[in-house]
């Protein structure tokens, strides 16, 4: 592992991220991203090199839309998430894939359970992050969430941040 970041530090960061989402602390979650960050969810089963210009993603947010996604999710008019679903995220297999000059590529595996109105759905997959360090703190430059199931027929929608 590179000398400039340890797995322990990455895990602390990613576990904190998961806890913020579990607790619906979405503003605090957004603050983990740098201004200008991007956020993506490629179609279920996509390869790591999937490109939103040639593949129909579920989410391909620029920073403005990411901020608006958070703002929307906090409203009672985001009907799919009102009342809020109950979620729990498990994050593991954290690995540093490479990096230099305080820019890191990081991956983790996840399982997220979402429960609402008597229905529980599972999302599983892996995240790919590009991170940097600002004033000593890790921050996200881009996040891609790959859903590794074949399709999302059972889940129907990705109304949460998985």
């Amino acid at each position: 592992m590179s000398a400039s970041v340890t797995r322990g530090e990455l895990e602390d960061f990613l576990f904190l991220e998961a806890a913020l989402l579990d607790n619906w602390q979405l503003d605090e979650w957004l603050a983990l991203f740098v201004e200008g960050a991007r956020y993506f969810i490629p179609p279920a089963g996509a390869d790591d090199d999937a490109d939103p210009a040639t593949s129909l993603f579920y989410v391909a947010d620029d920073y403005h839309r990411l901020c608006e996604r958070v703002k929307r999710l906090k409203k009672r008019t985001a009907h799919a998430e009102f009342p809020r679903s109950r979620c729990r995220r498990m994050v593991s297999n954290v690995r540093l894939l490479g990096g230099a000059d305080e820019r890191f590529k990081v991956t983790s595996n996840f399982v997220t359970w979402r429960s609402k109105l008597g229905v529980t759905n599972t999302f599983f997959g892996h995240h790919l992050y590009e991170m940097t360090r600002i004033d000593g703190q890790l921050r996200i430059l881009s996040k891609k969430t790959f859903l590794d199931q074949d399709d999302i027929r059972e889940q129907g929608k990705v109304s949460i941040i998985p």
Partner: peptide, 30 residues
């Protein structure tokens, strides 16, 4: 390519499982 990008951006902000509209349709129907 520029227009295609605008089109897909438009698509995703309203339509599909991660859009700002379709998930709420899904909820209404359920």
């Amino acid at each position: 390519p520029a227009m295609r990008e605008l089109r897909l951006f438009n698509f995703l902000e309203f339509l599909g499982p991660g859009g700002f509209a379709t998930p709420d349709d899904c909820e209404a129907l359920a």
